[in-house]
Design a protein around this nucleic acid. Structure first.
Length: 255
DNA sequence: AAGCGTTCCAACCGCAGGCGC
DNA sequence: CGCGCCTGCGGTTGGAACGCT
């Protein structure tokens, strides 16, 4: 079902994700957001490229993502929207909370395409859609079926990513939403790892830092954060190993 | 039980758009 | 304006799971 894991010529892992990798990525993003997909895997302790991490998060690990079990209503809506928008899967996905463009695309090709073909011959399809239209009618109905997001739902455009947030704002967001607070099994927000630059240097030089040979002077300014991050007043998300100890493992077991 | 074909979906790839410099 | 970087999108593929003979 999934591609066998392998390493490409750059040492990047490809193919199926292991539960450990999922755990690392999920934990990291839930704590720090996806501030930069390209850099994220290094900080999360993953030997994956950013694109792969983004895909895995968007299509599989996001808490609001639903898997399988398409309802008749969803099927009808997909078919209707496909008729309207064609293969613009992201547009279609926007009208189906919890469904990703990739999953909808797959679902279309494996199930609905055939059904659409059948029904376009008979006219069963249009009767189905008219039923659906009855519930969310007239212009803008695509938006109107955008069912209310659950309280913990994070849209792609949501401010989970701290790129636009200052440290204070991010902390406020995090505690207000209760999102990351709930992750702090062993304490409060102070548990977020914010070691000094010397700690970072120590960890790096002791060899349990990233697998990549970073030079501390090039990466961290005197605040201990990479210049490109510190400029925006953003707290540096720390490498996975430094942030997740036993509490993360405990959390993982609870999940 | 074994071999073969089909189904299905996670993941990859290439491209385009947006943005900053 | 051109360039490079990053992100997101849509098409395609790999291969495990499943069904059939």
């Amino acid at each position: 079902m999934v591609r066998a894991p392998f390493y490409d010529k750059n040492g990047m892992k490809k193919g199926a994700w292991s539960p450990q990798e999922d755990h690392k990525l999920r934990s990291y993003i839930q704590r720090f957001g996806h501030w930069n997909w390209r850099e994220l895997p290094k900080f999360a302790g993953l030997k994956r490229d950013g694109k792969s991490c983004r895909l895995r998060w968007m299509n599989y690990l996001r808490p609001e993502v639903k898997h399988g079990n398409y309802t008749e209503e969803e099927d009808a809506l997909i078919m209707k929207l496909h008729e309207e928008f064609g293969n613009r899967w992201s547009t279609i996905a926007a009208s189906l909370p919890g469904r990703t463009d990739n999953e909808i695309k797959n679902h279309w090709h494996t199930h609905l395409k055939k059904r659409a073909k059948r029904t376009s011959d008979g006219k069963e399809y249009s009767s189905t859609t008219s039923q659906s239209e009855a519930t969310h009618s007239s212009e803008g109905e695509a938006e109107s079926v955008l069912i209310d997001n659950p309280p913990n739902m994070i849209l792609e455009s949501s401010p989970l990513s701290p790129t636009t947030k200052s440290t204070t704002e991010l902390s406020s967001f995090i505690s207000d939403s209760g999102y990351i607070s709930s992750l702090n099994v062993s304490g409060g927000m102070e548990d977020i790892c914010l070691p000094s630059s010397s700690e970072i240097y120590e960890a790096q030089s002791s060899g349990d830092f990233w697998s990549e040979p970073f030079v501390v002077e090039n990466i961290y300014n005197q605040d201990g954060y990479p210049p490109f991050l510190a400029r925006g007043g953003l707290v540096l998300p720390l490498p996975y190993e430094m942030c997740y100890g036993d509490s993360a493992d405990l959390l993982y077991q609870l999940m």
